[in-house]
Design a protein around this nucleic acid. Structure first.
Lengths: 113, 113
DNA sequence: CCGACATATAAGTACATGCTTATGGATTGG
DNA sequence: CCAATCCATAAGCATGTACTTATATGTCGG
């Protein structure tokens, strides 16, 4: 099966919308370095704890993060599968973005070396 | 130079925001099949001409489309370079999106065959 | 020229969003 | 236990967004 599974456009929209907010992208970046609790995430951001929780809820709806509950702590982590819709979208438009994708391929190649 | 040039985060935000709207993505898809005027684009969408113009303005701000003026017509077309910030973002998070990127690489490989 | 056309912009409106403070439910440590 | 901690949710507010209609600007055809 292709990297692009059957994904209703609504999910694509959720992912793009989730990533459209700079704070949310920053939260996701933090989670890329390993799972963190809401309280841990809160440090370093100039927003309240509920704001962080709301951002996490949005990221979760988009499938970009998942959670692990342990007592009163909730550990969030980035879900690599979450960007599949993004990649699927790029793939769908490959015909006219082909040139760009070739460049991406070069980048990926460089990463292997 | 890498596929990711120096791109302030604000441009990333513009691109994600532009693509977060389904109508705008559909407009972009249409433009992928070749340049079209605003009036041509209007057909097939259930929104007014100003709405189309506003979507095009958003796509233009994000660098996803460019225009060519010819008399009273304005031909819009998708700009392949516009998704560079998107790819740049994926590249920056390669450390934890690595697994997904490998799958993307497979897809790109398949495209070559 | 000038009316019709192509497009952009302005102004208004309904709804979405991102934040806040307040509060509620669950869990833990002492 | 129970007060403190962790987190989510509710409610409210300011701002942003996507649309509309109305209008302005520019260009063409006859």
């Amino acid at each position: 099966m292709s990297v692009m599974e059957i994904q209703p456009a609504v999910i694509e929209t959720e992912v793009f919308r989730a990533l459209a907010d700079p704070t949310r992208r920053a939260v996701l970046e933090r989670l890329g370095n390993g799972e963190q609790t809401v309280t841990e995430l809160r440090s370093g951001f100039a927003v309240s704890q509920p704001a962080i929780s709301q951002h996490l809820a949005a990221l979760r709806r988009a499938g970009l993060v998942s959670e692990r509950r342990a007592g009163r702590h909730v550990y969030y982590r980035a879900d690599p599968a979450g960007i599949a819709p993004l990649i699927g979208w790029i793939e769908r438009y490959q015909s006219f973005w082909r040139e760009r994708m070739d460049r991406l391929k070069d980048v990926l190649q460089e990463m292997d070396e």
